[in-house]
Computed example of a mutant assay.
Amino acid sequence: MNNDPNQPSQTPNVTPVPPPIAAPSVGASPVAPTPPPRKKTGLIIGIVAGAIGLLLLVGTALFIMLALPGLQRVSTADSFLKAVTAGDIDKAVGYTDGESNRDFVTHSAEKLKGASFKLNDSEFRNSGDSYYLFALTNSEQKSARVTVAFKDGRNIVTGLVYSPSQLKLIPSKIDDTAKTPSKTPTANTEKCFAPSDYSTALGYTNSLTFTETSPYTTNAHFLADSLEYESSVAGSNIGTIAAIVSSNSGKGYTIHLNGSVATTAASDKDFANQRAEKVKKDLVAKGVAASNVIIDAPQNADSMGGATNEVVKQMARSVVIKFIPGCTTTTDR
Rank of each mutant, 00 (worst) to 15 (best):
D4E: 09
P5S: 10
S9L: 15
T15R: 10
P16T: 04
P18G: 14
P18M: 13
A23N: 05
A23P: 11
S25I: 15
V26P: 06
A28P: 00
S29I: 15
R38E: 14
R38N: 13
G42Y: 10
G42T: 15
L43P: 02
I45E: 11
I47Q: 06
I47T: 11
V48E: 09
G50W: 12
L54I: 15
L54N: 11
L55K: 04
T60R: 09
L62C: 06
I64A: 07
L68V: 06
P69A: 08
P69W: 10
G70V: 01
L71M: 14
R73T: 14
R73C: 14
S79N: 15
K82D: 12
T85H: 04
G87A: 15
I89N: 06
G98H: 03
S100K: 09
D103N: 06
H107L: 15
K113Y: 08
A115S: 15
S122Q: 15
F124A: 07
N126W: 06
S127K: 10
Y131S: 03
L133N: 00
N138Y: 11
T147Y: 03
A149I: 10
D152Y: 02
R154F: 02
T158V: 14
T158D: 06
G159A: 04
G159T: 05
L160I: 10
V161L: 00
D175N: 14
D176M: 07
T177R: 11
T180V: 13
T184I: 12
N188P: 01
N188Q: 12
C192W: 13
F193G: 03
A194P: 10
P195S: 07
P195R: 01
Y198L: 01
G203S: 08
T205E: 11
S207V: 07
L208R: 07
F210R: 05
F210K: 04
T211H: 07
E212D: 15
N219C: 03
H221F: 05
F222R: 00
L223R: 01
D225M: 00
S231I: 08
V233H: 02
S236N: 15
G239V: 04
V245T: 12
G252E: 12
Y253F: 15
T254C: 00
L257K: 01
T263P: 11
T264C: 00
A266I: 04
F271P: 02
A272K: 02
R275N: 01
R275W: 01
K280C: 03
V284T: 14
G287Q: 08
V288W: 03
V288N: 01
V288D: 04
A289T: 14
V293Q: 00
V293S: 04
I294M: 02
I294Y: 00
D296P: 01
N300R: 04
N300A: 04
S303W: 01
S303R: 07
Q314A: 08
A316C: 05
A316I: 03
I321M: 02
I321H: 01
I321S: 00
I321Y: 00
K322H: 02
T328N: 00
